[in-house]
């Protein structure tokens, strides 16, 4: 295992999917997309449309049947998940239940938890940045849902990979908490210049941050563009139907 070959950098990277195909049960998915460096990108679409699969392909949890995935113009199609310049936050189970906050964040530095002095300092700093200073020794069960996701983002900070993938990371949080978390993501993104992709059920998530929007249906990207344009009242018909806009409701 290349535990230390971290492609670590605070650089901005683009993501390109070049005719990537993937068979999910009966559905044949086909993705073509380009994501600019240092942007925030929201992925929306009906359930089962392939949003999570798209992120899993980029993270390396799924292997494409054909096509190429390039991050920063480097072909990563056959690269192991750990060797990709990617961090991912899931909806839940982001934290190991028996490890405290500091250890869970520390895993982002050293997957065997043998932390050096510098590592520990980085962990403490990341925990402070996500607003959990003083809670280093807490176990996940003593944290609220929002705090747990903050820990996961803290880990992404110490990993320092240029791509951050959020797979419905805030779906189980209430509206106020969700907005707080989005603001945190915005801060982190501005500071690090990460390229962010987030799967969400809430189109207004995309409006809260200056995002590009990708609308998926049946394993294909059917609309994309700046969120403010796509989500406007005169946006594409398809999208309005999904969102249940006033004129297509009845």
């Amino acid at each position: 295992m290349p535990e230390n070959s971290n492609p670590r950098a605070t650089r901005s990277v683009s993501i390109r999917l070049d005719s990537v195909t993937f068979d999910y049960d009966e559905m044949a998915m086909n993705f073509d997309l380009f994501i600019e460096p240092s942007t925030i990108n929201a992925i929306i679409g009906p359930s089962g449309s392939g949003k999570s699969t798209l992120l899993n392909l980029i993270a390396g949890f799924e292997t494409a049947k054909a096509g190429r995935i390039l991050i920063d113009d480097v072909d990563v199609t056959d690269v192991a998940p750990a060797a990709r310049p990617v961090s991912m936050v899931f909806q839940d189970n982001n934290l190991f239940a028996h490890l405290d906050v500091a250890a869970n964040v520390g895993l982002g530095r050293r997957p065997d938890l043998r932390l050096t002095h510098a590592d520990r300092a980085a962990v403490t700093e990341a925990i402070r940045k996500v607003g959990l200073a003083g809670k280093e020794m807490r176990k996940p069960q003593a944290l609220s849902g929002g705090e747990r996701q903050r820990v996961a983002i803290g880990r992404a900070l110490v990993r320092n990979r240029p791509v951050l993938l959020l797979d419905e990371a805030f779906a189980s949080l209430g509206p106020a908490l969700r907005h707080e978390m989005l603001d945190l993501v915005g801060d982190v993104q501005r500071e690090t210049g990460m390229t962010v992709m987030m799967v969400t059920h809430h189109p207004d998530d995309a409006l809260r941050l200056p995002s590009m929007l990708f609308f998926l249906e049946s394993g294909r990207i059917v609309a994309s563009g700046p969120a403010v344009e796509l989500l406007a009242d005169d946006g594409p018909h398809l999208l309005r139907k999904y969102l249940g806009a006033k004129d297509s409701d009845l």
Binding site: M1, P2, E3, F61, A80, V86, N93, P111, D112
Partner: peptide, 14 residues
């Protein structure tokens, strides 16, 4: 949880 295995492979655990 399957997420743990995803995480461990992303973090590069041996």
């Amino acid at each position: 949880p399957e997420d743990y295995w995803k995480l461990s492979s992303q973090l590069g655990m041996g």
